[in-house]
């Protein structure tokens, strides 16, 4: 018994050492993903965020065809960086809707005039209520919604040029 106790500290230490080493080997992952992926969208209905697009309700995302739901804001820099990729997706026939977070109509109009407008509908989420209900933790984020209004994929952060084929594939798989 005593012999065992003497070596116990070393054993515990080796356990911690392995833990630290595995922590170092794994890529740094600070991303908190939504646990609603695979589930139906929560119900919401948002007023229009831009002058020339209607608002957005959850029912309008369950139209039988997969859609991309983009969470963005005019004050967010990565969102501007992501804009060309969204434009490219829209040109390839992807239906994109958006939710603008803590935004003002004039700012959204200016943002869309400057970076292009790939969206069919844009809802204004002034107090992040829908963002929180979606389990989204920041901007920009994009959700792939299938025809029945189910979330099938969440993309955290801006969509880069090399992410576009993957997004297209996800949309195709959702059919």
């Amino acid at each position: 018994m005593k012999r065992l106790l003497i070596w116990l500290p070393l054993a515990i230490f080796l356990g911690f050492f392995a833990l630290f080493a595995s922590g170092l080997l794994k890529p740094d992952d600070r991303v908190i993903t939504s646990k609603l992926v695979g589930k139906t969208l929560p119900a919401f209905s948002l007023p229009a965020a831009a002058s020339d697009r209607p608002g957005l309700a959850s029912t309008e995302l369950a139209t039988g065809k997969p859609r991309l739901l983009n969470i963005f804001a005019s004050w967010c820099l990565p969102c501007a960086a992501e804009a060309p990729q969204l434009m490219a997706l829209a040109q390839q026939g992807v239906n994109i809707d958006a939710i603008a977070i803590r935004d003002a109509r004039a700012d959204v109009d200016r943002f869309l005039a400057r970076y292009g407008n790939p969206y069919a509908r844009i809802g204004l989420d002034a107090r992040s209520n829908v963002q929180i209900a979606l389990g989204s933790s920041g901007v920009p984020e994009s959700f792939v919604i299938d025809g029945k209004g189910r979330i099938v994929y969440q993309h955290v952060g801006d969509i880069r040029a090399d992410d576009v084929p993957m997004i297209l594939q996800r949309l195709k798989d959702a059919q």
Partner: peptide, 10 residues
């Protein structure tokens, strides 16, 4: 309700 969306992490 929050855990349902963000997981135990929150």
């Amino acid at each position: 309700w929050l855990i349902e969306r963000y997981g135990d992490w929150v």
